[in-house]
Design a protein around this nucleic acid. Structure first.
Lengths: 205, 205
DNA sequence: GCCGTTTCCCTACCGTTGGTACAGTTTCCG
DNA sequence: CGGAAACTGTACCAACGGTAGGGAAACGGC
C-alpha cells in the first residue's frame, strides 16, 4: 500500500507541473511515465484513464489549497484580535507568500479546468464548483465577522465580497502570466487589501 | 480573395467556439473541417499548422475585444462629462452587456493561452502580453484623467489600479464558470465599481 | 473569352498519442 | 509461505496532427 501511494504521488507531481505548463491536452501519458520511470501499464494500473488522472489531480490540488489558506488565515487570526485586522494581515501574508515564489504562481488547476470545461465529466466540474464554494464560505465567514464590528461605507453583498477574493487571485494569476510579471499577482492582492480597508474605514471620524 | 477570407472566418468561428469550450488540445482539426464543410487540405491551405490557427484566433479575438471596449467607454464618455462618472458608467454598461449574455461569458482566449503557456511559441505569448498591456494603457489613461480631478483617498499605483480592471474581468470569468453562475462576472464588476467610487469619493466633506 | 491566381478537393501516407487486453512477474506484508 | 498489491512486456487499435502532391473549380483582370 505504501509503495503504491508513493508512485501515485510521483505521477501526480509530474502531471501537475506539466498540466499547469501545457494544459491537459498538452500533457501526454508517455511523457508522464518517462518522468516517473514507470511503464504505461503501470500508469493505467493507478488511473483508469486521463479523466481519472485529472480528477485525482484536481482533488489533491484543492485539498492542498485549502490547507494553505487554513494556515495563513489562522496564523493571521492568532496575531490580530480584530477580525478586520486579521483579514488584512492574512491578505498581506498571502501576498508575501506569493511574492516569494521565484517564478510566480505556477497556475491554478481550477482555472485550467474552467478553460477546458467540456473536456471533463461532471464529477470534475462538481469538484471545481465545490472548491469555489468553499472559498466563498471561507471568506464570507471572515467578512461576516468583520461586519459584526465594522459597518461598510457602502452596502455590499457578503458573498459577492467573498467571491472578490477568489476573483482577484484567479485574475491576478492570469494577468501575471500574460504580462510575464510575477509580482503582479501579489500587487493586485494588496490593491484589493486597500479597497477592503477603505470599505471598513470609519467614515467622517 | 473575398471567398478565401469568408472560409477563413468560418474556420476561425468554429475554432473559437471549440477552443473556448474544450481548450486547444481538445479542439481537433477534423472537427473544425467537419463543422466548416471544408477538407483537410483546405484547412491547411489557410493555416500552416495549429499554432498559426491559434495565432490568427488570438489576434482576431484581441482586436474584437478592443473594439468592444472602444465602443462602451467612448459611449460612456459621451454621456458623462466627468471622467470618474464616465468610467463608472462604462463599468456599468460593461456589466449590463455581460449580464445579457444568456450563457454567460464564453471565456477569454487570453486566459486560455495563459493556461497553455509552454504549448505555444513566443509569437502568441507576445500577442497575449501586448493585449494585457493595451488594457493597462486604456484603463490607466482613464484613471489618470480621473486623478486630474479627484484625489484618491488612498495612494495607489495607477498601473496597478488599471490592471485591477482586467484582473476582475479575467477572475470573474473563471469564477462564473467554476460556480456555473453566469451572473457572477457582472456582479464582480459592480463590486469593483463600488470600490472605485469609494476610492475617489471626497473624504469627510 | 482566355489565363493565371486563388481557393480549394482527393488520395495516400506517417508518427504520436490515448487507450485496451492480457499474460506474466516482482514486491511487500501478514 | 501465500496471497494480494504493484507493477512489466507485448501487441494492438483508432484518432489526431501533419506532409506530399496532383489535380480542379472559381474568380478576376485583360
Amino acid at each position: 500500500m505504501r509503495k503504491g501511494e508513493e508512485t501515485r504521488a510521483k505521477i501526480l507531481d509530474a502531471a501537475e507541473i506539466s498540466v499547469l505548463a501545457k494544459g491537459f491536452g498538452g500533457t501526454s501519458i508517455d511523457e508522464l511515465i518517462a518522468e516517473t520511470g514507470i511503464t504505461k501499464s503501470g500508469f493505467f494500473y493507478h488511473f483508469r484513464d486521463k479523466n481519472e488522472l485529472a480528477k485525482a489531480l484536481l482533488e489533491r490540488y484543492v485539498e492542498n489549497d485549502e490547507r494553505i489558506y487554513d494556515e495563513i488565515f489562522s496564523r493571521a487570526r492568532e496575531l490580530a484580535d480584530d477580525p478586520l485586522q486579521a483579514f488584512l494581515l492574512g491578505l498581506k501574508l498571502l501576498s508575501e507568500l506569493l511574492s516569494d515564489l521565484p517564478n510566480g504562481h505556477p497556475g491554478c488547476l481550477v482555472a485550467v479546468v474552467c478553460s477546458h470545461e467540456r473536456a471533463f465529466d461532471r464529477d470534475i466540474q462538481e469538484i471545481n464548483r465545490q472548491a469555489a464554494l468553499m472559498w466563498r464560505r471561507r471568506f464570507g465567514a471572515m467578512f461576516r465577522d468583520i461586519m459584526r464590528v465594522y459597518r461598510p461605507r457602502e452596502p455590499l453583498d457578503v458573498d459577492q465580497l467573498a467571491d472578490m477574493v477568489s476573483t482577484v487571485i484567479e485574475g491576478g494569476i492570469i494577468l501575471s502570466k500574460a504580462l510575464k510579471e510575477p509580482k503582479n499577482l501579489p500587487e493586485q492582492l494588496l490593491v484589493f487589501r486597500t479597497f477592503v480597508r477603505l470599505l471598513f474605514q470609519p467614515s467622517a471620524a
